[in-house]
């Protein structure tokens, strides 16, 4: 071998040996704390109850509701069509397989939004995309659709429209148009699809 090759050969050898001896790096599969904090401070992860109800009614195939409470609470009551993955189980392989599917938008909910938000943070750290949090959780769900008072007489038309929409949602999910005591005009209620908010639209 001619002498001119000695240096390159030595360089390659040294580099590959150093590569083997390098101290192992932290695993790549997670976000840096700074990036995670940036994501946390942006509120785009929250989806309103109105939007989720609207998408449920339109049978949006990309919506996947995930209940992060424990299975006892899940069996007592859960939102229609939702899947139960308790937080303790969220990083298990089978859960990860479900959550890494493309083309779905996963909306987490819990009793209010603390637990769902924490789940979101854990998964975001692991680099998951297309995950959202139901703002207010089940408490907000019932507040908006089941215990909401009608708007005042003086309220503007937008508020009335929203109320109408919510009554429609209530009717859809209870499935009993005439039974409810305070709604004699239940049949007339038409569910008008609300404009989709951009919050859950993103994703690459």
């Amino acid at each position: 071998m001619s002498r001119k090759y000695i240096i390159p050969v030595a360089l390659l050898l040294i580099l590959s040996i150093v590569l083997v001896l390098l101290p192992r790096k932290q695993d790549h599969s997670q976000m840096s704390p700074e990036e995670l904090l940036r994501q946390i401070n942006s509120t785009s992860r929250f989806v309103s109850t109105d939007e989720v109800a609207d998408r449920l009614i339109r049978k949006d195939p990309s919506l996947a509701l995930i209940d992060v409470r424990n299975d006892k609470l899940f069996s007592e009551y859960s939102l229609p069509g939702s899947l139960n993955i308790p937080v303790d189980n969220i990083l298990a392989d089978e859960s990860q397989e479900i959550l890494s599917q493309e083309g779905l938008e996963f909306v987490f909910y819990s009793t209010d939004d603390i637990l769902a938000d924490q789940t979101w943070i854990i998964l975001k750290r692991k680099g998951l995309k297309n995950i959202y949090v139901l703002k207010g959780g089940l408490n907000e769900w019932f507040r908006t659709f089941f215990t909401n008072p009608p708007p005042a007489e003086t309220a503007d038309s937008e508020e009335f429209a929203l109320y109408q929409f919510r009554m429609g949602v209530r009717q859809y999910f209870t499935g009993t148009p005439a039974d409810s005591p305070e709604k004699s005009s239940a049949e007339k209620i038409i569910i008008t699809p609300k404009k989709k908010k951009s919050a859950a639209e993103g994703g690459c």
Partner: peptide, 17 residues
């Protein structure tokens, strides 16, 4: 190990040269 694999490939390549 991926780094070890690269090391072996380098050795193999140099041997081949």
């Amino acid at each position: 190990n991926q780094y070890l694999f690269v090391f072996f490939v380098v050795i193999a390549a140099l041997g081949m040269f």
